[in-house]
């Protein structure tokens, strides 16, 4: 189990461009197809992972590893997730520091960045509204969620509130609304 956790999250870690948000739906897909958790479990794990500092994807890996195999599982999944970053950064730091002055590298990122933007947007849609059918979209639950979500965006963009303060306020809003 530890080996499987490590290898799965090592693969995910290799694709975690854009800081980890982009691989959230990949983590959900891979863990659900293995029968490790269902959509509700993932929503819970993602919410807890988003509350803690650090990358939401790495934190999700930690929690999934813990649920599967205890502390050793958490360590294996987390190590798998950060090892690709560690190896690649060391190689880049040793040989290619002025990477972004290179035309070919710029061309590669020119094509990759829009994909990452789409992946993050999809992750947001999937994480927020993944289990909804068209019918259940018109519900008090969804309305409350949209209300809190929009409130969060205004609080962060307009009033420059710290993300953690926003999360605490949202928890309070959740208690009042739901």
């Amino acid at each position: 189990m530890l080996g499987e956790l490590f290898i799965l999250f090592f693969k995910v870690g290799c694709m975690a461009f854009g800081g980890g948000y982009a691989v959230m739906s990949l983590i959900q897909r891979e863990t659900m197809s293995r029968g490790w958790l269902d959509a509700a479990d993932f929503r819970e794990i993602g919410s807890l992972a988003g509350m803690a500092p650090g990358s939401i994807a790495t934190n999700s890996a930690t929690l999934i590893g813990y649920n599967q195999a205890g502390l050793a599982g958490a360590a294996a999944a987390t190590a798998g997730m950060v090892l690709p970053s560690l190896l690649l950064v060391v190689v880049l730091a040793a040989f290619f520091v002025r990477l972004h002055d290179n035309g070919a590298v710029k061309a590669v990122f020119y094509g990759l960045r829009p994909v990452v933007a789409a992946l993050i947007l999809y992750a947001g849609i999937h994480f927020g509204f993944g289990e909804q059918t068209l019918h259940s979209l018109w519900s008090w639950q969804t309305a409350g969620m949209l209300l809190i979500g929009v409130g969060c965006l205004i609080a962060i963009v307009r009033y420059k509130l710290h993300p953690f303060a926003v999360i605490l306020l949202s928890a309070a809003a959740g208690i009042i609304l739901f």
Binding site: Y21, M24, R43, E44, G46, S47, L48, G50, M51, I56, I120, L121, A123, G124, F127, G128, F129, Q141, G144, M145, L146, I148, G149, V150, C152, L153, I156, P163, V166, I167, L169, S170, A171, A172, A173, G174, I175, L177, F178
Partner: peptide, 14 residues
């Protein structure tokens, strides 16, 4: 409360 957090995390991803 976790539902509220879920909405907030979704907003952060967006």
């Amino acid at each position: 409360a976790l539902k509220g957090v879920h909405a907030a995390v979704t907003a952060l991803i967006m």
